[in-house]
Design a protein around this nucleic acid. Structure first.
Lengths: 137, 137
DNA sequence: CCGAATCCACGACGATACTG
DNA sequence: CAGTATCGTCGTGGATTCGG
């Protein structure tokens, strides 16, 4: 973390390429991960497969449409697998692919960071807001 | 990664709490990180401080307004520090705080994941799209 | 039960013009 | 140079409805 070497230009990625334009995939994946429901779906499917209606129940507030759209996107990116059982009534199971599992592992780090620092952030916000109130006076 | 133990309920975070409602900070941080310009700003400020105009030049396509808004948000969350030099013409330097640096470290993991797997994702998308075209026929 | 299609509201973003 | 203010546009996501 405090390693000064990490500040060298030896970084193996080019910051400029995080942009949307050109063949930059980072932005696309980030947008996918960060959209409103994907993260929840990935987390819920970790180590278990769930039906559409089960996901809908578990994820409080998601609309049928958005869950459907989200799952379609995740499926297209190879992060989630979709299995249709030819029965009546229809039954569809969703599960994480190996690729999806590796992504979840990576994301957990970010979630952990957030939890570890949310107090600091809350304090920073409070301090900032106090400063703004002084201005008004 | 393949550790089955990671699938146990020993997970130290509750997936349901990733939701926007209630006192969930994860969503807020994720939204902040994932917005259009924050990531770029954080990456550029890693290990160097930059002026407003320098950031504007480096980040292709950002509007003056959005850069301003982005910096204000990052500053409020304690991720970026703002230093005004009382000279004419005005000079303002932005730099990453220690907190911001730890976040950047965490995010790098996600960027690295994306780069490592973008080929797999591209192939999954191609396969998915091929399947859809079959449907139409 | 699963999910696609349509319509609409709202917030994010960009362009422009204006201050200290 | 470093912003703020105002306005118009556009995409995302919610509600609803219909089909397989």
């Amino acid at each position: 973390m405090d390693d000064p070497a990490s500040c060298e230009t030896t970084d193996d990625y080019d910051v400029r390429q995080w942009d949307t334009r050109e063949g930059c995939e980072v932005r696309q994946i980030l947008d996918r991960v960060a959209d409103k429901w994907s993260l929840l779906v990935i987390a819920l499917l970790d180590c278990q497969s769930l039906r559409f209606s089960e996901l809908r129940r578990e994820i409080d507030g998601v609309s049928q449409r958005m869950l459907s759209v989200t799952l379609r996107h995740l499926e297209r990116d190879g992060l989630v697998s979709r299995t249709v059982h030819p029965v009546v009534p229809p039954r569809v199971d969703y599960a994480l692919t190996p690729l999806g599992r590796t992504l979840h592992e990576t994301i957990k780090a970010l979630v952990t960071w957030t939890e570890d620092h949310q107090r600091e952030i809350a304090e920073a916000r409070a301090a900032y807001d106090r400063g703004r109130e002084m201005m008004d006076a």
